[in-house]
Simulated assay, not measured.
Amino acid sequence: MNKQPFFELKPDTVLDAVESLGYLSDGRIMALNSYENRVYQVGIDEKTPLIAKFYRPERWSDEQILEEHQYMYELVEQELSVVAPMKNAHGDSLFSYEDFRFSLFERRGGRAPELDDPEHQFQLGRTIGRIHQVGQSCSFIHRPVVDIQSYGVDSADFISREFIPNSLKIAYDSLTSDLLREIDAAFKRAGDVKLIRVHGDCHAGNILWRDDTPHFVDFDDARMAPAIQDLWMFLTGERQQQQLQIGEVVEGYNEFADFDPRELHLVEALRTLRMMYYAAWIARRWDDPAFPHNFSWFNTERYWGEHLLQLREQFFALQQPVLKLL
């Protein structure tokens, strides 16, 4: 993979790409907080600015990107507040300019949800229930699955082989082996849970709270996964807090979709897999100059020591009783 995949993506290139679709830019451009892809707010002459998203080369195929777009259009058709890509007169949503693929979005505003507010938790559950009602109507064909192999095994192997300091390698290998065994046991306890199309990355930064309603953005990580993949990130704080939160979330969720309680066995397993995958994601992108610049704390002895500590805490969490629906 190109070590500098966005090297040729200059401001002028961004403006020219947007104008190639018939828009007249006023020359204003602002980079937004995105590292996997590149996202910009582009000023449009005498109109509301647009958001231009340039996809990282070689990450997703055209078919995978278009599956993501189609999922969002299905959600919009059901009157869900999802920021879907704009289409041109021919119905296209994925465009090319020079060596880059990009899409355009309307600019939307809002604030992050308050995850310690029971009403916000309930509303988040209701909205995800509606999203999953659509998500379970069919399956992705081209997009991958959230699973132990890609998120856990492959991540641990890559970190162990390429990044973990020699002084921590034995401890890391032993701990990740134990974690993967516990994660596998958690999936087996959950049983044959249903895989559906999910948002895949439901952290607070991908939710805009406006007019007492959550609005969802950035379906770039949409995959096939158990429903709990889109719910567990709403659970914060100590176990007692999470017990109350899951009750609110599932109560809202069940108004539109049926939550399978067996999936509660996967909360800490999926949390652990995300931590492993996140570290490996940064490591895999380390040749991209934007990553050392923006993640300067990564790949230091201190970082890896703290990462091991967090994983040990997850090993303990995986052995605790599962959350219950009261």
Rank of each mutant, 00 (worst) to 15 (best):
G27A: 14
H120L: 08
R111G: 08
T176I: 02
A257V: 06
Q41I: 10
Q149C: 03
G135M: 07
M233T: 07
A317W: 10
I170Y: 03
A89Q: 13
V153L: 14
V193Q: 05
T236Q: 14
I131Q: 08
L94F: 04
E119A: 12
G247I: 08
R107C: 08
N254L: 10
F316V: 13
Q229F: 03
W281V: 09
R126M: 09
A269I: 02
V153K: 14
E74S: 14
F158S: 10
Y97I: 07
L168C: 09
F100S: 10
R38D: 04
F6R: 12
N2A: 08
N33S: 12
D184V: 00
F295C: 08
L273D: 14
Y303E: 14
Y278R: 09
R302E: 15
P292Y: 12
R161Y: 12
F315K: 15
Q149N: 10
K324C: 04
G200P: 12
F158Q: 09
I282N: 11
E63C: 05
P261G: 05
R285F: 01
I148M: 06
H215P: 00
E58T: 11
V250W: 07
I65W: 12
L308P: 04
K324L: 07
R107N: 08
Q123W: 04
V198R: 00
E114M: 11
N254S: 13
I29A: 06
D212Y: 09
S61G: 07
D230M: 03
F216T: 01
K87L: 11
Y23I: 01
Q245V: 08
P226C: 03
N88M: 03
R239V: 13
W232G: 00
A204Q: 11
M72C: 15
V83Y: 02
R262G: 01
S25C: 15
A31S: 14
V322F: 00
W232A: 00
R223S: 06
L244W: 03
I228G: 05
S93H: 07
E46N: 13
L15A: 01
R108K: 12
H265K: 02
T213Q: 14
R181S: 14
T176H: 05
L66Y: 00
Q123T: 11
Y151P: 02
D220W: 11
Q4A: 11
I131V: 15
S93V: 04
Q41A: 15
D184Q: 15
M1P: 04
G109C: 02
G129K: 03
E313W: 11
R274Y: 10
A280K: 13
P11C: 05
N254Q: 15
S81R: 08
W297I: 09
Q229N: 11
S174N: 11
L231F: 03
S139H: 15
F315S: 15
N33Q: 12
L94S: 01
M224W: 02
